[in-house]
Design a binder for these strands. Structure first.
Lengths: 124, 124
DNA sequence: TCGTGGTTACAAAAAGGTGCGTAATTTACT
DNA sequence: AGTAAATTACGCACCTTTTTGTAACCACGA
């Protein structure tokens, strides 16, 4: 076990949602029920392993529900839980925030307060 | 430029907010202007390297404004930009979502989603 | 043999920590 | 007086830890 104490909930959520995949998977999952291979098609750059890893993480967190149908070839379906659905608008809001705040290209906005030095040295 | 064009804004935000520190720093910064050493005190486990790295990332993203005062010992102050302030309630909402959906912290009220294992051991 | 969902072992890459150096000025000690 | 140390916010180099990718394997029925 790595860490045991839950400091603030924000840390917890971010630990869950951090990385490229969690929000992306939620994004695709909000479209409805998806199978493993569907999600791979939706997002071709995720590796097999990552997908099953992330899916399990979301499942453990109660965001995604996994339904396994018997038989072969094995069939498994994933869908958002009610809790997962409640999360969607929050994630969307973040996306909207991004669009409206730092839009497109550079944002310089020299605020011009009292301090002496210039604000930012630009980098790559 | 390092990354390709912006796919969906959600990916962008998450790339920015992913990790332990960004949201934490925003959390502390919403209390007002902070200096480098203040933030280190607020969060003793962050290394000075990480702090300056994350701070610069947030600055580049337009969330944090860095104000450098001349003189020695050098003094630098950090504060949220208006955009950064707009981000705060969204992050709070995520925290609230976590509290109300999954009880990780040791609250009561089993949500009744799955057979509970032992409540002491939780896997990452 | 293929196709599905998943796991494991190993390798690569990314993230993160430690410690040293730097600046200009004040304070501390000799 | 003169030297040494501390201060603040970093950058850089080096090293460890964590995460992610690759590839192969398993199950089994068509």
């Amino acid at each position: 076990m790595k860490s045991l104490v839950s400091r603030c909930p924000i840390e917890e959520v971010m630990q869950l949602l951090s990385g490229r995949w969690p929000t992306l998977l939620i994004y695709y999952l909000k479209q409805g029920t998806k199978r493993f291979s569907d999600l791979r098609r939706d997002n071709p750059t995720i590796s097999h392993k990552m997908l099953s890893l992330e899916l399990r993480k979301l499942e453990d967190a109660g965001i995604v529900e996994r339904t396994e149908f018997g038989g072969y070839p094995l069939r498994v379906e994933y869908q958002l839980t009610p809790g997962g659905h409640r999360l969607v608008p929050l994630i969307d809001a973040l996306g909207y925030w991004w669009e409206t705040t730092s839009d497109g290209g550079g944002h310089s906005s020299s605020a011009g307060a009292e301090p002496v030095v210039s604000n930012t040295v630009l980098r790559d």
